[in-house]
Nucleic acid binder design. Structure first.
Length: 293
RNA sequence: GCAGAGGUGGCGGAGCGGUCAAACGCAUCGGACUGUAAAUCCGACUCCUUCGGGAUACACUGGUUCAAAUCCAGUCCUCUGCA
């Protein structure tokens, strides 16, 4: 649970919509600090493919500065580590306890953002039973009494069935919603497509392939949690000599577009979100939000 | 020119007389999702519909049959082999 009582600004949105830049500018204007809400940029070594900002310096574990703005929760988790939403929420809570600046939660991981803003109660779990080898049917049987509370797709979703069994039910508990203003960067799909294409080209130029090679040399594998990231996992078959580098590129593009779609779907369910694309507007609205009583 | 193979939905590709508006994959679109979340999963995808159905569809034109994407004939294309 989050205990923070102050105001918080959210800059959410699909990948490549310009969240980082807007957040940085906003932070400068309103004396803000940025808290990462991107489930990939938390990882060490996962740099180019996650479009992690290039910081000026690291102050302490997970805390960096860029243009004088403090950035929290970047580049501090080992890709092999099993970092979860529970850990994430905890980290954010700890930061918010001591923060002096206006927190700006920035990223594309909707679940991570909402776990903070809508204050999910995540604490009461966890039977650690091994269920991965069970079939869907077996899991449905085990989760029988929870099925009525699950959505149609969740009932056929192995991961979600396993979770239901482990936590013995469906948990929708929330604490008090934070005092927030929630922006979703709204970029037209065609424009975003072009941007993503260019961005992938750039990633290759910057050495995405080399980064993958280096990760493998360091002993990471594509089974590690942090390696299951768009821009990395697609290289797996390349190194197995199954596909070409062009194929890799194409798959990265397709997977990114699929990701964009899922992100949009997630953010659409928040009726309070302000879909916006004009930096000045964001600055204006955010400033008003900070100033008002 | 002769000999083979073939033309199926946006694409790839099954089907080879009825249970076919047509498997499967991809693309596209919509959606779900509180401890894997850049994950995982569900649905739609010819048109119309009062959601029971209805109307057009498997290159084209005819034919056989109670019934044809599936069989036959012709036409037009495409590929491969031989000339």
């Amino acid at each position: 649970m989050i205990e923070y009582k102050g105001k918080i600004i959210v800059i959410a949105g699909a990948t490549a919509t310009g969240k980082s830049e807007i957040s940085l500018n906003l932070a400068k204007e309103i004396n803000g600090a940025i808290i990462n809400a991107d489930s990939r940029q938390i990882y060490k070594e996962i740099n180019i493919g996650s479009a992690k900002p290039k910081f000026d310096k690291e102050i302490s574990k997970g805390i960096h500065t860029l243009n004088g703005i403090t950035h929290y929760l970047y580049d501090f988790v080992d890709p092999k580590e099993n970092f979860t939403i529970f850990d994430y929420q905890n980290c954010v809570n700890n930061i918010l306890k001591n923060i002096q600046e206006v927190p700006i939660l920035t990223g594309g991981s909707g679940l991570y953002i909402d776990s903070v803003i809508y204050n999910y109660k995540l604490n009461k779990n966890n039977k650690n039973i091994y269920l991965k080898d069970k079939s869907i049917e077996e899991l449905q049987e085990l989760a029988k009494e929870y099925l009525p509370y699950m959505s149609e797709s969740d009932r056929k979703n192995k991961h979600r069935l396993i979770r239901a069994v482990q936590r013995e039910g469906v948990n929708k508990e929330k604490g008090k919603e934070l005092n927030n203003i929630y922006f979703v960067m709204d970029v037209q799909k065609e424009i975003l497509q072009e941007r993503i294409k260019k961005r992938i080209d750039n990633m290759f130029k910057e050495g995405l392939l080399e980064e993958n090679i280096s990760l493998l040399k360091q002993g990471y594998t594509y089974n590690d949690k942090g390696m299951k990231t768009i821009g990395y996992i697609e290289f797996k078959e390349y190194f197995e000599n199954k596909i070409s580098l062009e194929d890799v590129k194409e798959r990265i593009f397709k997977n990114t577009m699929g990701y964009v779609k899922r992100q949009r779907t997630w953010f659409k369910r928040n009726k309070n979100a302000i879909w916006i694309n004009e930096p000045k507007e964001i600055l204006y609205l955010a400033s008003n939000f900070i100033l008002k009583e």
